[in-house]
């Protein structure tokens, strides 16, 4: 593939890399697996890029390829020290928002999300990204009604995980 195309792609990837990082935050369990997943998503995006015709927004297209990689293509590497850096790898509040109680609650919430299965994580991610049920159902290939029902169940499950 041409250098020009590659340059164009890296510009776009750079501009939207936050999306990929956020997916990695949901699926990866430490810094090394974050980088692994980020890399695999970037490669898959790059491989699919020549077919990207610009019908959709780049970011919308990116959500789909990135999530597909996380739940369908990516192979987790086994690591013996997998849990060691989890504490450093949680959701960080910005400094000015600092509030102990809120932060504690968010930490628990984050840990609970980590316990969900891959599909539930995808739903949570899209929900957090403020995607509507139409987009969620289109990305995953389920009906809107099912996406809504499932989301309500996940919310309930997360509540139970936190209070339990």
């Amino acid at each position: 593939m041409s250098k020009k195309l590659e340059k164009q792609f890296v510009e776009l990837l750079d501009k939207h890399q936050n999306i990929v990082h956020k997916i990695c935050r949901i699926y990866a369990y430490d810094d090394a697996s974050h980088k692994d997943l980020f890399q695999e998503i970037s490669i898959q995006l790059w491989k699919a890029y020549p077919k990207f015709r610009g019908e959709a927004k780049f970011s919308t297209w990116m959500y789909r390829v990135a999530l597909n990689t996380a739940i369908s293509l990516y192979r987790k590497k086994k690591r013996s020290i997998a849990t060691s850096s989890i504490t450093n790898f949680e959701f960080k509040l910005s400094e000015d928002e600092y509030n102990n109680e809120v932060e504690e609650h968010l930490k628990l919430m984050y840990q609970a999300i980590k316990e969900l299965n891959d599909i539930d994580k995808a739903l949570v991610f899209l929900y957090l990204e403020d995607k509507n049920y139409k987009e969620i159902s289109d990305t995953l290939g389920i009906t809107e009604v099912n996406a809504r029902v499932k989301m309500n169940r996940i919310k309930k499950k997360l509540k139970e995980l936190i209070s339990g």
């Binding site: 956020k22 970037s42 490669i43 509040l93 809120v102 609650h105």
Partner: peptide, 28 residues
């Protein structure tokens, strides 16, 4: 619950890691 996280979710951008363009090139 999740809605609290959703409020904070949007504000986390500056705390996310950021790879340089060189790093992105290397990954490809």
């Amino acid at each position: 619950g999740l809605d609290l996280l959703k409020e904070q979710w949007k504000k986390q951008n500056k705390n996310l890691p950021k790879y340089s363009k060189d790093e992105l090139y290397q990954m490809l």
